[in-house]
Nucleic acid binder design. Structure first.
Lengths: 347, 347
DNA sequence: TTGTAAGCGTTATCAT
DNA sequence: ATGATAACGCTTACAA
């Protein structure tokens, strides 16, 4: 069905070389000839075969983005940013969703070795075991981590967002809101992101000098369900002043559990999430969250990847800053518990 | 860097054919030999070159899903379903986001002609102009529409969800809830999906015998912003009993506008959306919506695509049924306006 | 059981 | 300005 340059050449009684040159705007073809070739190519509905081209040229105009959970709106947002940046450099984006499954992640890394994509941006943690299963040489030369830290030892390139700083902002904010007993609801216990956010929280509380105590639970998943379960476990022992959930999905789960107990979010308990996905501004009580600079992460990741692929440099690791977005889930608590000279009037 | 079968063959002093056979579990290789080949392949970190393989075999283990707006959670949900179905048949999913841009859509269709993917599932409308820009023969033989209707004339294959039925369910429900003046907030005026939902609404109202009037506004985008603007325009003329928004994004925009006017959603005005995305269950007043059977749409689309690709049949168009999920945004209205013998007790 | 060789559709390097 | 022709890495008849 699909026409080839050979067929075009046959029709016109010229060589395939001429056709190729004409179609690719290369010099060395007469203007008349070029037009003729163009016309018959159009007539035959010619579309260049991607694989043949990639095979000989060694170039693939695809870039892969690997995300762990596409139903977590944070990742579509990141995807949008990456896609935009990629389009600007003439590359199309392939989105791979691993669903947090390690075999799918390993499979995704193979895309690089098998040259299905020119480069890969990975937005979930890579551990040593995964890296063992692939050729590190190949991988490290076309992979950029986004939003997750590079495993020690591997000289992997990454664009990070400062999770500790984000946690710290939350810590300070919560203390300012008058919270004392603070609970942390985390992601997987082995997740550096989760750990760093907790660590930041601790630091933030300390800085503020408010004698605050932390309780922390974690149970292995960045999901709403997990948030619900952790809150459930938490409430058996205590009702904290504030809960910091390591991402928005968890926060929403926590909120559901609180509502079930008749605890008013924002009044009874302050609540903060992480990622600032769109939904947290839509919930019955809008939830305070930490916004990641997705647009910058995306464009920087694409830029670094481009540099690596063109062999420019080793890798310029980058760390960006997140920013707290305060909403009713904490502000309301603040109004009830803090004597704020100016703000008290407005409440 | 990346090893080739030629190198493996060289190392072992055998022919490339033997290596190929050994690696692909084809008959005609001694067990000893096969093991030797396997071992050196592993040592050299061999990964088959995707393009070379596709070039000769004509097969590509990729399937493309084209969505118009990845930040609309309906599409990630669909993607998940398609991905699952694809994985079951050994294919990986490539997700293309067009951002509602026609050039990106045209570009996506080229993936098929250029054999970057074996088949394409498209979840946004194709019009004649777009189809003109590609070879219809090629396209119609490897494309399945999902959730959108096939343009007349083209024998394109599609998996539809009955939008009219969905609209009808909403219409009946709204009348049952005691609404009389009903407004429709639509997507793009030329969108069959939007039109069908409106048409269904009209029918549903008629069936119920409730003398209900419809006002309809539409302005070109399936976005929250558009919902907000349309509600704004609407409120200049009237405050309806109920508003049916053609998708959840619009519904959320509408809700934002209502809240700004101090109109209590569910009490002052009933509200219904479409798609039943996760967020509508999380809003301050949970929003009634129509759930599409995404899982079925996904698996059916993949199945039909598989049949087409293996040349089994022309195409068995399918139409699935959506189902209304009633929530407070309408139920509360109902409790206030309807004398329902049984339900009144429970309220 | 193994080797030889002919493609697959391009691009690119020579000649002419 | 155009034509042969050799790659690219792999699969697959066809021989041996």
């Amino acid at each position: 069905m699909a026409a080839t340059i050979k067929q075009i050449a046959g029709r016109l009684n010229v060589s395939v070389a001429t056709v190729s040159r004409a179609l690719n705007d290369l010099p060395g073809v007469g203007e008349k000839m070029r037009r003729k070739v163009r016309r018959t190519a159009a007539e035959l509905g010619y579309v260049p075969d991607f694989h043949a081209r990639a095979l000989v040229s060694g170039k693939v105009p695809f870039l892969g983005l690997v995300v762990p959970d596409i139903t977590n709106s944070f990742f579509p947002a990141l995807a949008l940013a990456v896609e935009e940046a990629a389009a600007a450099s003439g590359q199309s984006l392939i989105l791979l969703n691993t669903n947090w499954r390690r075999d799918r992640l390993a499979q995704a890394l193979e895309l690089l070795s098998s040259r299905r994509v020119s480069g890969l941006i990975v937005a979930e943690p890579l551990d040593a075991a995964i890296l063992d299963s692939v050729d590190l040489e190949t991988v490290s030369n076309g992979l950029v981590l986004a939003g997750v830290e590079a495993p020690g030892g591997t000289g992997l390139c990454s664009v990070m967002v400062d999770d500790r700083d984000g946690g710290m902002q939350v810590g300070r904010h919560l203390v300012e809101c008058g919270a004392h007993r603070i609970a942390f609801v985390g992601g997987p216990s082995e997740s550096p992101n989760s750990r760093d956010r907790l660590e930041g929280l601790t630091i933030g509380l300390g800085i503020s000098g408010g004698a605050a105590a932390i309780v922390s639970v974690t149970d292995g998943a960045w999901t709403e369900e997990s948030g619900y379960r952790q809150a459930d476990r938490l409430l058996r022992d205590m009702v904290p002043d504030a809960i910091f959930a390591a991402n928005d999905l968890l926060a929403i789960g926590v909120m559901r559990r609180l509502v079930e107990s008749g605890i008013a979010v924002g009044r009874g308990v302050a609540l903060a999430g992480y990622d600032d996905t769109h939904v947290v501004s839509l919930t019955s009580v809008p939830i305070t969250s930490v916004a990641q600079p997705t647009a910058q992460v995306g464009s920087l990741a694409v830029k670094l990847l481009g540099q690596m692929l063109s062999g420019d440099s080793g890798c310029g690791d980058a760390v960006l800053k997140p920013s707290l977005v305060a909403r009713s889930s904490t502000l309301e608590f603040s109004n009830l518990h803090v004597l704020a000279p100016r703000d008290a009037q407005g409440a």
